[in-house]
């Protein structure tokens, strides 16, 4: 890899864990006219077990980074390795497979299917990744139990509080044992009490060794992470590290 290595993260993370995310000179430009550079070429490394917050004001390029990390978008430049797999040049089939098996998404607006129970919403995550049918229900219940919702498996989203809904979404993200939990403003739609409950879950998951990337504009949320990356005007900066410029 010939990309700049000046911003490789090794210091604050738990040292020798394998790399989950490795961005090398990754940038994203949207075709014009005029062309818009949403993310300047940036480097970022995240190791297994890290809890990283990506902060920045709206329009700073946070969403672009989230979509690139989540394989929902492809970088214009640079290379992105997920679990050591170079994602450049992968087709829809492989990108979908990686998304389904290695990334758990948590969205600001939960994205639960309103007509399905909490358990059925979690089951949905196992639909596309070859989980044997017989194992799905037990796995879904276990995931719900891990977010403290073992008693609400049959509840419809409409009967759940916002915090409970987000916990169902977290259970859905966890159920396939992903390498990475990618959270987009996970507390953005929650009041402070519910937000706190969700953040506590994140602390627990971090303690259990999960890798979390939380994208937020809320400094209080970012403060819970062990490592913070700032993004502004499409440039990634990590406090205490030299700025990365393309």
């Amino acid at each position: 890899m010939t990309a700049p290595t000046s911003a490789t993260a090794t210091g604050s993370g738990p040292g020798g864990g394998p790399l989950v995310i490795r961005l090398a000179g990754v940038g994203r430009t949207f075709a014009g006219p005029p062309p818009v550079t949403a993310l300047h070429p940036s480097d970022l490394e995240i190791r297994r077990g890290e809890y990283v917050a990506v902060t920045g004001p709206s329009g700073s390029g946070k969403s672009t980074l989230l979509h690139l990390l989540g394989l929902l978008d492809t970088p214009s430049t640079g290379s992105y390795e997920l679990d050591g797999i170079d994602t450049a040049g992968l087709g829809d089939r492989d990108r979908s497979t990686l998304r389904g098996q290695r990334i758990g998404f948590v969205f600001q607006s939960f994205h639960l299917l309103a007509h399905r129970t909490a358990e059925e919403n979690v089951l949905l995550a196992q639909l596309y990744n070859r989980t044997p049918r017989a194992r799905r229900r037990a796995a879904a219940r276990e995931a719900l139990a891990r977010v403290g919702l073992a008693h609400r498996t049959r509840a419809l989203p409409g009967t759940l509080s916002g915090g409970e809904r987000q916990r169902v979404a977290i259970a859905r993200a966890l159920v396939n044992g992903p390498s990475l939990l990618l959270c987009d403003e996970p507390t953005g739609n929650l009041d402070s009490a519910n937000a706190e409950a969700v953040l506590t879950r994140f602390d627990d998951l971090h303690a259990q060794g999960h890798t979390l990337v939380v994208i937020t504009h809320d400094p209080a949320v970012a403060a819970r992470a062990e490592r913070s990356v700032r993004i502004g005007d499409g440039r990634l900066r990590e406090p205490g590290r030299p700025a990365v410029d393309g």
Partner: peptide, 16 residues
Amino acid sequence: TEEIGLRRSLGARSRH
């Protein structure tokens, strides 16, 4: 649309 996006994020291919 939202459900489609969700399914894609859960690993569904466009053909699914």
